[in-house]
């Protein structure tokens, strides 16, 4: 677990005069699961979007296996195929069945054999408990089901690293579990992942390392046990306190 596959150096992201990310640096090693935490609006989601070149960056560099990632990269589509991304709002393609949602990119972009991808897709659907939904349309699925399909869709591209952007934030509480269980299983298999989430107990269970971002900078990072039990900075302490309630009885 020491080969660096994703490397971020001094990343700066601005919208007009508003600096969202101000000098972010970190490495992601193969098989590592990193959870990014921070208050709303701290730029966590923007960070993930930059890593996939969905946002142009104003400073710093991003390398995937040594290749620079930016919106002007020569082989941008090739790079993006190696970075899987799952969005908060699922973003299944509404005009395609579940199976076609999963097949479209491997078949059209990677030019793989349809039958081969189909077999793999069905196997993955089976594992997330949705094999019988292969011919359904997105509108017929619950939020939790849609999100599991979106994860399978990303996995079928065989990405080097998977970016998960608040994937349970739009879900009803009882559906959160079914999605997070899928992600926990991926972690067990050694998938490299970068996860933005507000589910703290999930973060603690899955993370190899926690990055705490506030004000556009990494304020604190470390092993989850250290971060959650002995936060070093005042801002991290304050952030963790907002998740606690004191009894009023």
């Amino acid at each position: 677990m020491d080969e660096v596959i994703l490397s971020v150096k001094n990343l700066v992201k601005r919208f007009d005069d508003n600096t969202i990310l101000n000098g972010i640096s970190f490495d992601v090693r193969r098989g590592e699961v990193i959870v990014v935490l921070g208050p709303s609006g701290c730029g966590k989601s923007t960070l993930l979007r930059c890593l996939n070149a969905l946002e142009p960056i104003q400073g710093g560099e991003i390398f995937l296996n040594g290749q620079a990632v930016d919106s002007a990269a020569k082989d941008l589509t090739g790079l993006r195929q190696q970075i899987g991304m799952v969005f908060q709002s699922y973003e299944l393609f509404p005009h395609m069945s579940v199976l076609n949602n999963i097949l479209i990119a491997p078949v059209q972009v990677q030019k793989r054999q349809r039958e081969e991808v189909r077999a793999e897709a069905l196997q993955l659907l089976e594992r997330v408990g949705l094999r019988e939904k292969q011919n359904s349309f997105p509108r017929e699925l619950s939020g939790g089901q849609k999100q599991r399909v979106a994860i399978v869709r990303a996995l079928c591209m065989h990405p080097e690293v998977l970016l998960l952007d608040e994937i349970t934030a739009a879900l009803d509480p009882e559906m959160v579990r079914e999605v997070l269980d899928v992600v926990l299983n991926l972690a067990r298999e050694g998938k490299t992942m970068l996860i933005v989430t507000h589910e703290l107990s999930f973060a603690r269970a899955i993370a190899d390392r926690v990055l705490f971002i506030d004000g556009g900078k990494i304020v604190e990072q470390g092993k989850p046990a250290d971060f959650f039990d002995h936060p070093q900075t005042e801002r991290a302490k304050q952030f963790l306190r907002t998740f606690e309630y004191e009894s009023v009885k």
Binding site: T77, R80, E91, I104
Partner: peptide
């Protein structure tokens, strides 16, 4: 627009 971003994230080109 996030539908096209999703497509780009899956490695599709603009025309795809």
């Amino acid at each position: 627009p996030i539908q096209s971003e999703t497509a780009y994230a899956l490695g599709m080109s603009r025309s795809q």
